[in-house]
């Protein structure tokens, strides 16, 4: 048995030792290890937080960032910001319908008679209509930088929601010893970068971080919340990071709940099999 545990430990230790290293060339303010409502094996999304985060996305981020894998009906899915047990079919959910109906941008389609583009209001089946029709238009409107799609942003960054929070709260004035900073970019302590080329101060103390193309998007109470929750920058950042975590992993709640059930089942099943095994081998000297 001990051998088996050892094998298990080795199997688990090997992947754990392979945490991706920080790039040798770039530095960044360390990603904090925050506690979220969804942290840990039993953590679940906090629906009120997801709603606040969605409000921040809608009012601030969606000006530049698309979220191409989120459809309006996803907002009403189990675990989502507007899920209600009264509307098991999210297409019937009145919040979902109203959000789709009042979305600031319309869906472009081709008129099947004339071949010209027409516009219509989005329905719950549509993707949240993006701010730009394509990547080229997005880059052209943002000084050549493409605002990344947000559907998988949290999943595509080490630290996930902690990384997003870190970025949003680490904009800072350009340090005094920086010379020749690239125009149209903003200093951010959490954005991986290498400032040694611009730094004229002590070479052993190059400031952490780099230049990000996004201007600081949030200020205190740029978005206000109907439930009176704090709208300070750090809280806005937390809420939108939680929403983006949901966008990356909408099935998390179901996954963890199923995981607990499967784990308990397997423990019991292993126990039954073990007793069965001992029973079978009872009279064999081995």
């Amino acid at each position: 048995m001990l051998r088996k545990l050892l094998a298990l430990a080795v199997a688990l230790a090997l992947p754990a030792s392979l945490a991706a290293p920080a790039s040798a060339a770039t530095t960044q303010k360390p990603v904090p290890n925050l506690q979220w409502s969804f942290s840990g094996p039993f953590g679940m999304y906090d629906q009120a937080q997801l709603q606040r985060g969605f409000k921040v996305y809608t009012e601030v981020c969606s000006q530049c960032h698309a979220i191409q894998y989120i459809h309006f009906h996803n907002l009403g899915d189990p675990g989502g910001p507007f899920w209600s047990p009264k509307y098991p079919n999210p297409n019937d959910n009145p919040y979902v319908k109203s959000i789709a109906d009042s979305w600031p941008r319309q869906v472009t389609e081709i008129n099947s008679d004339t071949g010209d583009p027409t516009h219509r209001k989005p329905t719950s089946a549509d993707v949240l209509v993006p701010p730009f029709p394509n990547d080229a238009a997005a880059k052209a409107s943002n000084g050549g930088a493409l605002p990344p799609d947000m559907s998988l942003l949290v999943a595509a960054r080490e630290g996930g929601p902690n990384y997003v929070y870190n970025i949003l709260t680490s904009f800072a004035p350009t340090p005094a010893g920086i010379v020749g900073a690239p125009p149209g970019k903003y200093y951010n302590e959490a954005f991986p970068g290498d400032l040694s080329a611009y730094w004229k101060g002590d070479p052993n103390h190059v400031p952490l971080g780099g230049f990000i193309s996004m201007p600081p998007p949030l200020t205190d109470c740029k978005v206000t919340f109907d439930d009176g929750s704090s709208c300070k920058l750090a809280d806005e950042a937390r809420d939108v990071a939680a929403f983006l975590q949901w966008a990356s992993d909408p099935k998390m709640d179901q996954r963890k709940q199923m995981g607990v059930a499967v784990f308990i089942y397997l423990l019991i099943f292993s126990g039954l099999l073990y007793v069965s095994y001992r029973q079978i081998w009872k009279d064999v000297a081995h």
Binding site: L12, M258, G259, V262, F263, L266, F269, S270, L273
Partner: peptide
């Protein structure tokens, strides 16, 4: 196998 599935399940679900 069922013990192995326990380890497998930890990865898949958590």
């Amino acid at each position: 196998v069922s013990l192995f599935m326990l380890m497998f399940a930890v990865f898949v679900f958590f």
